[in-house]
């Protein structure tokens, strides 16, 4: 019984690890492809050959080893991988870092190395390349390319890395097309032209424009707060003003003619009286502290500085 449970637990762990691996591999996407490679990416033998890029869309590194690349998915349902290119499992470079890509050559030369496949788009009957999971049955991604790619010097791929469809006006549309720049091994969406900062340097070389705009915005922001606080103040003191008005209306005519400074003590006078009373009440004391000392107590008291606590006590014999 105990052994059965152990076997079951082992199976669950193995199953979990397989599914985990599968889940990570499913984050891979066929991202970009170039067939007419006249002056673009060169393989390690110095040849210009067609290539395809695989992009890892996840934020974890993924090992592509064991997966298949093919231009003919016949046999997918039965897991017949005999005609597919299997990515070697012995090569440690098959790990694709997060949000990065690997380039595979479609040169029909699988003996040239890990990244050389048995696919040649120029002789292929199908216009697609498929990425299949190591189990030989799960299709991870299929990259369908137009026939025009076979004669075009441009590459074909996702406009945004790893995203082959997008939603426009509520409809799912293709997010792929001929790309202006072939970018093997790097992001498809390249920044063309000047950056924000470079553009600013050209249009405002002395920084005066930016200074004027920025100061205006700072003033605008703080003026808005100023106006808000003004309204605040007005509404907050409205009650006080109302009360004062009512009080003024209640004051008899005789006292109304009395000068303001004779009506009552001013704020400063009240403060002086309060201070005097405070001093008077707090300065009276009959009892002294009865502590006579010439030493100031230590400012930095710490039990570490207490001799009786840190010294070893002498054992007394009785």
């Amino acid at each position: 019984m105990n052994i059965k449970y152990r076997i079951l637990a082992l199976c669950i762990v193995l199953l979990g690890s397989v599914s985990l691996f599968g889940q990570q591999v499913t984050d891979l996407r066929l991202n970009e492809m170039l067939v007419v490679n006249d002056s673009n990416y060169v393989d390690e033998y110095g040849r210009h050959v067609p290539w395809i890029e695989i992009f890892n869309t996840s934020y974890n590194q993924v090992n592509i080893a064991g997966c298949y690349l093919t231009d003919d998915t016949t046999g997918l349902s039965v897991g017949d991988a005999s005609r597919w290119y299997r990515i070697p499992t012995t090569d440690p470079t098959t790990w694709i870092p997060q949000r990065s890509s690997k380039v595979f050559f479609l040169d029909n030369s699988p003996l040239y190395g890990t990244y050389h496949t048995n696919i040649d788009p120029n002789t292929s009957a199908n216009h697609y390349v498929a990425l299949i999971n190591s189990n030989g049955k799960t299709l991870i991604d299929i990259f369908v390319y137009p026939e025009a790619l076979l004669t075009s010097a441009q590459s074909y791929g996702c406009y945004d890395d790893g995203i082959n469809t997008k939603v426009e006006n509520g409809k799912k549309v293709k997010n792929m097309g001929m790309l202006p720049y072939a970018t093997p091994g790097s992001v498809n969406k390249v920044q063309v032209g000047a950056t924000k900062s470079e553009h600013l340097q050209k249009s405002d070389p002395h920084g005066i424009g930016l200074a004027v705009i920025s100061i205006s915005v700072v003033f605008a922001a703080l003026i808005m707060i100023f106006l808000m606080l003004k309204i605040f103040g007005y509404t907050a003191t409205r009650k006080d003003r109302k009360a004062k008005k009512e009080q003024a209306a209640d004051v008899p005519a005789a006292t109304a003619n009395v000068p303001a400074n004779e009506v009552g003590p001013t704020g400063e006078e009240l403060a002086a009286i309060t201070l005097a009373l405070h001093l008077f009440f707090n300065s009276q004391h009959d009892e002294e502290s009865e502590i006579i000392t010439i030493d100031m107590p230590s400012k930095h008291y710490s039990p570490w500085s207490q001799k009786n606590l840190v010294m070893k006590k002498v054992v007394r014999r009785r």
């Binding site: 005066i208 200074a211 920025s214 700072v218 703080l222 707060i225």
Partner: peptide, 20 residues
């Protein structure tokens, strides 16, 4: 005293003078 907030805005001129 909300009008004092505008002094805080004026003092930011130093940032943009140093930028230039």
């Amino acid at each position: 005293n909300p009008k004092l907030i505008l002094i805080g805005a004026a003092a930011q001129c130093g940032i943009f003078a140093a930028y230039a």
